[in-house]
Lab assay of single mutants.
Amino acid sequence: HNLTITQGKLFFHYNPKLCLSEIHKMEEVSGTKGRQERNDIALKTNGDQASCENELLKFSYIRTSFDKILLRWEPYWPPDFRDLLGFMLFYKEAPYQNVTEFDGQDACGSNSWTVVDIDPPLRSNDPKSQNHPGWLMRGLKPWTQYAIFVKTLVTFSDERRTYGAKSDIIYVQTDATNPSVPLDPISVSNSSSQIILKWKPPSDPNGNITHYLVFWERQAEDSELFELDYCLKGLKLPSRTWSPPFESEDSQKHNQSEYEDSAGECCSCPKTDSQILKELEESSFRKTFEDYLHNVVFVPRKTSSGTGAEDPRPSRKRRSLGDVGNVTVAVPTVAAFPNTSSTSVPTSPEEHRPFEKVVNKESLVISGLRHFTGYRIELQACNQDTPEERCSVAAYVSARTMPEAKADDIVGPVTHEIFENNVVHLMWQEPKEPNGLIVLYEVSYRRYGDEELHLCVSRKHFALERGCRLRGLSPGNYSVRIRATSLAGNGSWTEPTYFYVTDYLDVPSNIA
């Protein structure tokens, strides 16, 4: 807008934040220059609390790290170098490059900038070799853009010569660093050979998330399962459950009422301010606690030095998902009996873990797994792929695949051998790939016309006998059925096997 004052003059007093240069501009645009008398524009009460600059400061050096910015700028000295009290560095987070010096300023003089007072450097006698002032900004957020400017702080001049310097606002972004852990990993099994893994992005990506790394490792069953005799009275049979499938998407929606109208769909109840505040506090606490764990609990591995020492970490090797089922080394339970199943799973520490690289999504279907087997899954978020990966501390989750139908069934015939004193040795093959492992066998036998009897055969007993022995049988026709019990439950009964026990007292003698 054009402003013209045809008559009258300007009068400025007691404006401590208004620089004289701005008042002189007002004289020019209003056409009143030359009308004012000496005392109409006070030299001592206008701009006496402001830094009124008329020179431009330029930054000469900028260096960044993930949490620091090192700045240096060209030296500046007023005509009387004693008038320079120091520099004021202003900075704040700036997602967009549209910041002005006066953003967030209120009537009390406060604003949204963080201000650092910096002492002037030592003055050199040689004007050509003056030290460049600077400042190291610490405690910054990774991968965050900051708006920065600097200006001088000078003393009051009796001659009211307006001098000083100020830089333009520059924008500097800190470097990326390792992201925080992925949030809320959930693993479920939808079949006997697959596990579905879902997660949420890290709360602090500290860069642009480029991919996720998912490692999985087959877990050995508890050692007590191999040692305890679950045929003993009072000892509860062990059981394991597989990871249940995901709930429906509708039930997972946030901010939804727990109660549904019987007449149909209901609208979600909005969260109160107290609920939102509580969630923010919980989120802040979780982030602080995660940072504490990362800094205190997890110790970084030592990389190899120039002395030739090897990095103890196993090298990563990509495998196809079809090879995942046989990740671990199978060892027989008892070496003397080769027909026992290889369900003991000690994992070799030198073995390469299978892994998958996930790009542009937060889910993965891990296939080719062994049925009813526990897996430990390790999830890392990465925001750099080359020249070397920059990934987060791992988040861990466990899951067990679903049982395989008929995996616990005894394959092959049940054979028998009759000894003296009416002892019958029953023999059968253990299931080759049971659900988890076989903890015991149930032997059901009966003599024709009598009630059915049951015998429990422990895992250890089966390994020693290759089956079991029935003792003290009365003469007669017998039928026997056997079924295995694994961590997933009972298998199917075998087809009945028949044998006849004679009275050993009636056996004919070869003595003449």
Rank of each mutant, 00 (worst) to 15 (best):
K233D: 04
T485E: 10
E281V: 15
S268D: 10
E362P: 12
R318F: 14
R481M: 10
E227S: 12
N295K: 11
A407F: 13
E430V: 11
V327H: 07
Y448F: 15
F499Y: 02
F285K: 06
T347V: 06
P403F: 07
I410G: 09
L228W: 10
F372P: 00
T497N: 08
C266R: 10
Y478R: 00
G234H: 11
T347H: 04
S363R: 04
A405D: 12
R400Q: 10
T288G: 08
V414N: 01
P245W: 08
L470E: 01
D250V: 04
S262W: 09
I276N: 15
N208R: 12
P338D: 07
F226L: 11
R318V: 12
D450S: 04
K233R: 14
V423R: 12
Q275G: 13
S274H: 12
Y259D: 07
T210W: 10
R447S: 14
R466S: 13
Y504I: 07
E420P: 14
P508I: 08
S392Q: 01
P403W: 14
F246I: 07
L453F: 09
N360Y: 08
D503N: 08
T401N: 01
V359T: 08
R318A: 13
A463V: 08
G368D: 04
T307G: 03
S268Q: 04
S239W: 11
I276H: 10
G374P: 10
L470W: 03
M402T: 10
F289R: 06
D311K: 12
T485D: 12
S367T: 05
V329F: 02
R286T: 15
P434G: 09
G322D: 11
G412T: 08
L473P: 02
S492H: 15
V424I: 01
E282W: 14
T386Y: 03
V334R: 07
V299S: 12
L321D: 02
N255Y: 04
G467S: 09
T485A: 03
L440F: 15
C267F: 14
A463R: 10
C468D: 00
E430H: 05
N326A: 06
S320K: 14
P244W: 07
S257F: 13
R353I: 14
L455V: 10
F337M: 12
A394D: 03
S243M: 13
D261T: 07
E227D: 10
P475V: 09
D409P: 02
S348T: 05
V334T: 13
Y292Q: 01
D291C: 05
E465W: 15
E351L: 15
R466P: 06
R481N: 08
V414C: 03
T415G: 04
D261K: 06
P354N: 07
S251P: 12
N421V: 10
T373P: 00
D506T: 06
A336E: 03
N360S: 09
G322A: 13
S320V: 08
I377M: 06
S251V: 12
L379V: 08
R240S: 12
T333N: 11
Q380M: 14
C468H: 14
F298A: 11
A399R: 07
A399Y: 09
D250K: 15
V345S: 11
P387W: 14
T494W: 01
L440P: 00
G436R: 06
E433I: 15
S248P: 13
V501Q: 03
V296E: 07
V358A: 03
R353V: 15
T494L: 02
D291V: 08
D229K: 12
A399P: 07
T340K: 09
P434H: 06
Y292E: 14
Y441T: 02
E362G: 03
E465P: 02
K460G: 09
L235R: 11
P244F: 12
R319V: 06
E227Y: 09
V214T: 06
T386V: 15
Y292W: 07
F419V: 05
R316G: 02
N421S: 08
R286A: 14
P244K: 07
F289S: 06
N421H: 08
S458G: 14
L232D: 13
V365S: 08
A335S: 10
N490A: 06
R370I: 11
V327D: 12
C391R: 03
E217Y: 15
R481C: 06
R240V: 08
R471H: 08
R301L: 09
L473A: 02
E310R: 03
T340M: 14
P238K: 11
D291G: 15
E452G: 10
S342C: 02
S492M: 07
N383M: 15
Y448C: 13
C269H: 02
Q252A: 11
V393G: 02
T343P: 11
G476Q: 00
D222W: 13
R447P: 08
Y230S: 03
T343Y: 12
F419T: 06
E260S: 08
L437Q: 06
L364E: 15
V324T: 07
R301C: 07
L225R: 13
A395N: 07
Y478E: 00
D408H: 02
R301H: 04
Q275K: 12
S223L: 06
L470K: 00
V334N: 05
S342F: 05
E247M: 08
E290C: 15
N339I: 08
G489M: 03
E227A: 05
V359N: 08
E350I: 08
Y259H: 05
A220C: 15
N255M: 13
L470D: 01
L487R: 05
N421T: 06
G489P: 03
S251Y: 13
N510P: 08
E378M: 06
T373D: 03
H461D: 13
P244R: 08
D229P: 12
G436D: 14
Y212V: 08
K406G: 06
G374R: 02
G374T: 10
V439S: 04
Q256P: 09
V501N: 08
E362M: 06
F246K: 08
K317E: 14
P338Q: 05
R318T: 09
T502E: 04
E452R: 12
A335Q: 05
Y498C: 03
M427F: 11
A484S: 07
F419R: 12
Y500T: 11
V414A: 11
V327S: 08
R447I: 07
C456N: 01
S305G: 06
E217V: 09
L280P: 15
P244C: 07
A336K: 09
Y441I: 11
Y396D: 02
W216T: 15
W242P: 12
R447F: 04
G489C: 03
L440W: 15
S458C: 12
G322R: 11
N422T: 06
P431S: 03
H254L: 12
R483N: 05
L277Y: 14
F289L: 08
T307K: 04
T288N: 07
L235M: 11
R390L: 10
K460V: 08
N339L: 08
G472V: 11
V296N: 14
S344C: 09
G436F: 11
E433S: 15
D291Y: 14
K302L: 09
L473D: 00
Y448M: 07
D450L: 06
T497H: 05
T303W: 07
C382I: 01
P312L: 15
N477Y: 13
E388M: 06
S251G: 05
K302Y: 09
D503A: 13
T502I: 05
H416I: 10
D409A: 05
S444M: 06
Y504P: 08
K287V: 14
P431L: 02
G207C: 01
V345C: 05
S262I: 10
